[in-house]
């Protein structure tokens, strides 16, 4: 099954962080990504630019609205993701616990729906 690991963290704390500490976290993510890849679990995964770079788009009464900023103002923000292939939820939770972000932020673990199963016949 495919599972999304959504990494939420306080991006303000990240921006205040000393360079050495930030480097250590990059190193931890580098090792984590390599372990996922070597285990054959990695499909995709990247960090995201800060929410200050985000835009939201919607159509209202046929007219587009473009706004600066993220969809929702929250205490912790979506800062990155992994899409992984695992046998079951037990494995997914184990990988989530190993994610460096689990130690300071929160990892949301969401199974992916299979579009293939929903395709019109």
């Amino acid at each position: 099954m495919q599972v999304m690991l959504l990494i939420y963290d306080d991006e303000a704390a990240w921006e205040r962080m000393p360079e050495a500490e930030r480097k250590a976290i990059y190193g931890a993510y580098f090792a984590y990504t390599a372990a996922l890849r070597e285990a054959g679990a990695m499909i995709a995964g990247e960090p995201l630019q800060p929410t200050s770079t985000a835009h939201t788009v919607r159509l209202r009464d046929g007219a587009p609205q473009v706004l600066d900023g993220p969809y929702a103002e929250t205490k912790e923000q979506l800062g990155g993701y992994y899409l992984i292939e695992v046998a079951d939820m037990t494995q997914a939770l184990r990988w989530a616990a190993r994610c460096p972000g689990a130690a300071h932020g929160t990892i949301e673990v969401r199974p992916v729906m299979s579009m293939a199963a929903m395709a019109p016949a």
């Binding site: 190193g27 931890a28 090792a31």
Partner: peptide, 19 residues
């Protein structure tokens, strides 16, 4: 690197990565 990537304990991870 593999050991660090599989670690759950942040202290163990930091130890392996020499932090």
């Amino acid at each position: 690197r593999r050991a660090a990537g599989l670690a759950t304990d942040p202290a163990m991870r930091a130890f392996l990565l020499g932090g």
